[in-house]
Simulated assay, not measured.
Amino acid sequence: MSLPHTAYADALHATLADAGLAPITTAVRVTDTFIRLTRQTVHDLWIELAWESGHSLTWHHVQGWYLHRPGAAPSELDLPLLVDPVVLIAVVQAALDGTWSRCGMPDQPALWTDYRDVDQRIAAWEDRS
């Protein structure tokens, strides 16, 4: 069974690879958390992209985007959940160059062209869970 966010992870990896910024790993996963109070299990969708330098980007279907840099606290990225992968080229390049700054984030980044399909798949996944 394919996870609802696999196509987005594939697009992220391909776009970054085309820009010469291929991550050494691209992981697509689901974690399950049991909440005792409500006696329900919550299913979280994740994408993790990592580089040899120790930098990584983490995507969570509820919490959004985080940039992880060696020796620094994770930085929440103010980006749409299904941002156009092209937007991340500048973020990754700046992080790897050591020039990343929250001030360099785009004002209104574009959404990925296929975001509706993935968004619907995620919604169906959440309804089923």
Rank of each mutant, 00 (worst) to 15 (best):
124 A>N: 11
30 V>C: 05
110 A>F: 04
45 L>E: 00
76 E>D: 11
33 T>G: 06
78 D>R: 15
43 H>A: 14
88 L>M: 08
16 L>N: 00
25 T>V: 14
128 R>V: 10
34 F>S: 10
41 T>K: 06
100 W>G: 00
31 T>N: 15
115 Y>P: 06
112 W>H: 05
30 V>M: 09
104 G>V: 11
13 H>T: 14
24 I>W: 13
10 D>M: 03
122 I>Y: 04
62 V>W: 11
72 A>K: 06
20 G>T: 04
108 Q>S: 12
47 I>A: 01
14 A>V: 14
111 L>F: 10
61 H>M: 11
24 I>P: 09
91 V>C: 04
24 I>Q: 14
86 V>C: 06
106 P>G: 08
10 D>Q: 06
52 E>H: 07
56 S>D: 01
97 D>W: 09
44 D>C: 11
69 R>W: 05
44 D>Y: 12
45 L>H: 01
1 M>F: 08
107 D>K: 15
85 P>R: 03
121 R>P: 07
47 I>E: 00
85 P>C: 08
117 D>P: 03
47 I>M: 02
46 W>E: 12
127 D>Y: 13
21 L>Q: 04
27 A>V: 14
61 H>D: 14
32 D>T: 08
104 G>Q: 09
67 L>M: 04
19 A>S: 10
126 E>V: 12
11 A>R: 03
78 D>A: 15
46 W>N: 11
76 E>V: 14
90 A>H: 05
119 D>V: 09
86 V>P: 00
20 G>Q: 06
93 Q>W: 05
91 V>L: 06
16 L>V: 09
80 P>D: 02
85 P>N: 07
44 D>S: 15
34 F>T: 15
101 S>F: 10
129 S>Y: 06
58 T>W: 02
18 D>G: 11
95 A>Q: 00
51 W>G: 01
10 D>I: 09
19 A>P: 03
88 L>I: 09
15 T>S: 03
24 I>L: 15
71 G>H: 06
10 D>K: 03
22 A>L: 02
108 Q>G: 12
68 H>C: 03
89 I>R: 03
50 A>L: 07
34 F>M: 12
90 A>Q: 10
76 E>W: 11
1 M>W: 07
100 W>H: 05
12 L>Y: 00
59 W>C: 01
77 L>P: 00
10 D>P: 01
104 G>N: 12
26 T>L: 07
111 L>M: 10
78 D>P: 07
104 G>R: 12
43 H>W: 13
114 D>H: 15
32 D>H: 09
53 S>D: 06
107 D>A: 13
1 M>P: 07
48 E>L: 09
77 L>A: 03
4 P>F: 02
7 A>L: 15
1 M>S: 12
73 A>T: 13
124 A>Q: 10
84 D>V: 08
3 L>P: 01
104 G>F: 08
20 G>H: 06
33 T>I: 13
50 A>V: 05
66 Y>T: 12
109 P>H: 08
30 V>H: 04
114 D>T: 14
18 D>T: 10
58 T>L: 12
22 A>T: 09
4 P>E: 07
5 H>P: 01
59 W>H: 03
101 S>C: 14
60 H>F: 11
109 P>Y: 02
64 G>M: 04
39 R>F: 08
42 V>R: 14
97 D>M: 08
103 C>M: 14
120 Q>P: 07
44 D>P: 05
96 L>Y: 02
30 V>D: 00
87 V>Y: 05
88 L>Y: 02
